[in-house]
Structures are given as C-alpha cells and as structure tokens.
C-alpha cells in the first residue's frame, strides 16, 4: 500500500508530461493565420478585405492574350481557374497568396505562370469602396480535385492575419474543358 501511492503518482506525472509534450503547439501552429471558412459563392469578411469565389472552371489548356501575343499554358494535370470578387474594407491592399489544400494535405500554391495577364487577382490593387474581380489559377493532379479547399490570404506568411478557406464541394463533377480562354474583357 505504501508503495502504491507514490508509484501511481509517478505514472500519472509521466503520463501528464507525455501528453503535454505531444500536444505542445509548434512554432507554425502558434503563428498560424486565423481561418474564416465558407463555400463557393459565399461572401466572407476578413480583417482587411471581403472576398467571394464566383466561379470555378476546369480545363486542360489555358489560353490568354498578353502584349498582343496569344499564350498557351499546358499542364500534365488539370487547370482550375477561379474567378473571385474582392473588396478592401479598411485600407488599400493586394491579395497575393492563394493555395489549394488537397484532401491528402498537400498544398498546391497558385500558379505564377500567367503573370503577364492583367486580370489575375495578385496583380489587382484593391481600394476600399471599389470591388474588383480577379482570377486565380491552380495546377492540380486530377485525383486531388474532390474535397479540396482553397486558401486565400493577403500574403504568404500572415501570422494571426485572416486566411479564407473555401471548401470546393462538387468540383470533380465539373466538366473538363479542352481550352480555358481568358478574354480581354474578363
């Protein structure tokens, strides 16, 4: 009896320490941005801007015109082209960080390849009171479309800033177009 109590206390202490060590948040978790979740078509409000994903299109090639030349972007996977509308609420801002979190946890950062097309969201300067539309482009493997989440934030490393998470439900049922064309008036 006299050995049981200290032994039990020791076991309990070791257990508590083990649990604390396993669940201690890492640096990346402590400085994680604050997530605001929503669905396709839903308007979400964050710290510096509001945003809404208007539409998603899937295609094998992306075609656009820039500086008078026709550019074609090819991929081994699938292009997912998102059109979003956004408005700054407190200050002029540019939204440059977007990534697709696949169901297996992998993060596909938005493609920088169409960087000469002026309609891309990352090239838009959002002013308070003036909503704007822009495009975000992802290059994805075919099997990571279903159950994905699009994460949009002001910058890539945004500790404690807002990060919008749009759940892409039903994306895999969208038709896969041969060519996605971005026209001049988009």
């Amino acid at each position: 009896m006299s050995i049981l109590k200290p032994a039990a206390a020791l076991v309990l202490a070791v257990l508590a320490l083990a649990v604390m060590q396993r669940t201690a948040p890492g640096y990346a978790d402590i400085t994680r941005p604050i997530t605001v979740s929503g669905k396709l078509g839903e308007r979400l409000t964050g710290r510096q801007f509001d945003i809404r994903v208007e539409s998603v299109r899937l295609g094998r090639d992306l075609v656009y015109e820039a500086y008078g030349r026709r550019q074609t972007l090819t991929t081994n996977g699938v292009w997912a082209l998102l059109e979003v509308s956004a408005e700054a609420t407190t200050e002029s801002v540019s939204i440059i960080a977007a990534s697709w979190r696949a169901p297996n946890g992998a993060r596909y950062v938005a493609s920088k390849r169409p960087s000469t097309y002026p309609g891309m969201l990352s090239l838009q300067r959002l002013e308070p009171g003036l909503p704007k539309r822009g495009f975000i482009l992802f290059e994805l493997p075919r099997d990571q479309l279903a159950g994905g989440t699009v994460l949009i934030a002001r910058t890539e490393f945004a500790p404690l800033d807002t990060e919008f998470a749009f759940h892409m439900d039903g994306i895999d049922t969208l038709p896969l177009q041969g060519e996605l064309v971005l026209t001049a008036d988009d």
Binding site: T72, T74, A106, Y108, K112, R113, E139, P141, Q144
Partner: peptide, 15 residues
C-alpha cells in the same frame, strides 16, 4: 514540354 519558364513544381506532379 513547351519551353515555358518553370516557377513552382507541385506535389505528386512529375515534370
């Protein structure tokens, strides 16, 4: 494939 500049390479997509 097409001579374009490469920026990021994505997970599980061989290039």
């Amino acid at each position: 494939r097409d001579g374009a500049m490469v920026f990021d390479l994505h997970p599980d997509m061989p290039e």
